[in-house]
Design a protein around this nucleic acid. Structure first.
Lengths: 195, 195
DNA sequence: ACCTGAACACCGTTCAAGT
DNA sequence: ACCTGAACACCGTTCAAGT
């Protein structure tokens, strides 16, 4: 798995070969199939590992937030997810690309992903309960946010944007969405002076 | 090309094989390479054809609009693009997936795509000139709309949504974005208020 | 318990030879 | 001008045989 992940990072998802991974570990071409049913299973295992890291980065970002503004937390999840995806394009790709393995068969991976989605949605629901959102269909709003972040990551990773400044403008777009669509105003608490 | 496109529609992008396509045309496995430099070139050619159809659907949708509301036109482009992508997932996929061929080398394809983007952006600019938009950074707003539509299509096509009702809710999200983010009101055709 | 290494089916791709 | 069909390199995958 480590070898596979290394190869993916170095050469991209499309170039990686079970044989190469085996060779990197110094083992024969058939050996991996004693540990993984097939190539898809290997990919799924790597994807799960990597999705776990994504989860960890989101958690880290959430931990940095003081106060209890659920919309701020919602935003933080988007920021962390987006940053993670842009910094680790191949990692993002392996977790979301269906051709590599069957989503339905990777229970753990799917669970992590659903937890992340549920958590983000939970923040939005809490915000609504507290009357912090404009009058809005929550299902639609959540979907919009999700599509926006996913689209930003995908546009960059699919190579539809000039490589420079993508991260910066992506975060700008996210904040523009937070302000313009959700009507969220950042509290003064999170302003930290920096020099 | 026709055979390739047929196979893609039937079995998906990942299953299609130059050999299969050749067989379908009743020709030997090496024959296609007399017409296309390699598999990538064949894919690029199919992608170009398909991107042209997308363009045509957008044009058709634009033609149905009366009046001259540029924001309505902007929306129509999004609607047409989204509908096209959701109805022809494999077509969408082949036009946007970088692993299949080099974007840089498919000049015609890239041009169509850029024209579409430029046209959409043009509508937004016109709207801004006419004072139909709230105070907004156009670059960011356009990027947001693009990411949203792309994200909606991608989420569905990558299989991250339950298959049912995807089209409906996607269009809801788009309209929610038009109203909630751009502050666009569908309004009557011959409205002209401007204060 | 784990690996080897030959084998198989399948691909993309090439190319001398055919029509 | 276009195609054939054998060949090559490369894959994923299997499996009898080894340690």
């Amino acid at each position: 798995m480590r070898a596979t992940l290394g190869l993916i990072e170095e050469s991209g998802l499309d170039q990686v070969t079970v044989r190469d991974a085996a060779e990197r570990v110094g083992v024969s071409s058939g050996a991996p199939f004693r540990h993984f049913e097939d190539r898809a299973a290997l990919m799924a295992a790597v994807a799960e590992e990597v999705q776990g890291r994504c989860r960890a980065e989101i958690d880290a970002e959430l931990r940095r937030i003081r106060g209890d503004d659920p919309v701020e937390r919602f935003r933080a999840m988007g920021v962390a997810y987006l940053r993670w995806a842009l910094r680790n394009p191949t990692h993002f790709e392996i977790t979301v690309t269906p051709r590599l393995y069957e989503f339905e068969e990777t229970v753990a991976l799917t669970r992590i992903r659903q937890e992340i989605a549920a958590q983000a949605r939970g923040f939005l629901e809490e915000a609504q309960r507290r009357g912090m959102l404009r009058n809005i269909d929550l299902r639609v709003a959540f979907y919009a946010g999700r599509a926006l972040v996913y689209g930003l990551a995908r546009l960059a990773i699919d190579g539809h944007l000039s490589r420079w400044g993508v991260a910066k403008i992506s975060l700008e777009v996210l904040d523009s969405f937070m302000a313009g669509y959700l009507h969220w105003k950042p509290g003064r608490r999170r302003k930290r002076q920096r020099k």
